[in-house]
Amino acid sequence: MGGLIKSSVAKKFAMALSGLFLVLFLGQHFTINFSSVISPDTFNEWSHFMGTNILVQAVLQPVLIFGVVFHFVMGIVLEIHNRKARAINYVSYKGNRNSSWMSRNMIYSGLVVLAFLGLHFYDFWVPELVHKYIEGHPEDAGRYYGELVEKFQDPIRVILYVVSFIFLMLHLLHGFSSSFQSVGWNNKYAKGLRGFTVAYAIIIPLGFIFIALYHYINNL
């Protein structure tokens, strides 16, 4: 039993670290995308750097992909483990009184986010690979803004992005703060950190939604 507990704790710890890493990337990704609203030239410059820098392409990008896969695989493993642990149901148990909707449905919000990532890779990452490595086009540092705007001219795609980021918000509202608890962050700054994670979980997804709606409406 002790080995099982340690294993479960280790899995939660590893999942928390991967989640915090993905949250850090999310903020960086938002900063670049939001620059498209303020300055197309800045967006092109930053996007070109991310798309051509050898460190980003050869090191950070594979680490990011591994982090995404690892985080969601661990989430599924822990969900299966938790369901087995709850095999005996108590009549007096009231889920909505003991935990929030977000915490009880992390696996579902996570699956929606994972599906969105598949769409996002299909929309941006795969075309980028085709453009550079299959079709062999020369580097064009000014093409990124136009490609972004073109993607958001499809109202169906915009709706899917909006819905996906709402689910990301729900996922982060529980997951971000609980990640710090899983890694043992419990001190006098914990309350303030909780406030920061809630603000981050709301502002960043709403920011992405704003970007999608801005480019759709601005180019009608």
Rank of each mutant, 00 (worst) to 15 (best):
3 G>V: 04
5 I>V: 13
7 S>V: 07
7 S>T: 11
8 S>I: 04
16 A>L: 06
18 S>H: 06
22 L>N: 05
22 L>T: 06
26 L>Y: 11
27 G>W: 10
29 H>V: 02
33 N>E: 13
34 F>D: 06
35 S>E: 04
37 V>N: 13
39 S>F: 06
40 P>W: 10
45 E>K: 15
46 W>C: 01
46 W>H: 10
47 S>H: 07
48 H>Q: 09
53 N>Y: 07
57 Q>P: 03
60 L>R: 12
61 Q>P: 07
62 P>L: 04
65 I>V: 15
67 G>C: 03
71 H>T: 08
71 H>P: 01
71 H>W: 05
73 V>Y: 14
74 M>A: 13
79 E>H: 10
81 H>L: 07
84 K>G: 00
87 A>R: 15
89 N>G: 04
97 R>A: 10
98 N>E: 12
99 S>D: 08
103 S>N: 10
108 Y>Q: 14
111 L>P: 05
116 F>C: 09
121 F>C: 06
122 Y>A: 14
135 E>G: 00
135 E>R: 13
136 G>M: 08
140 D>V: 07
142 G>E: 14
147 E>P: 00
149 V>N: 01
161 Y>M: 01
163 V>H: 06
165 F>D: 07
167 F>M: 12
167 F>C: 14
169 M>S: 12
170 L>G: 01
170 L>D: 01
171 H>I: 07
171 H>F: 09
176 F>M: 02
177 S>Y: 14
180 F>E: 05
183 V>E: 07
183 V>S: 04
191 K>Q: 09
193 L>I: 13
195 G>Q: 11
199 A>S: 04
205 P>Y: 07
206 L>W: 03
207 G>E: 05
208 F>M: 09
210 F>M: 06
211 I>C: 03
213 L>H: 04
217 I>Q: 05
220 L>Q: 12
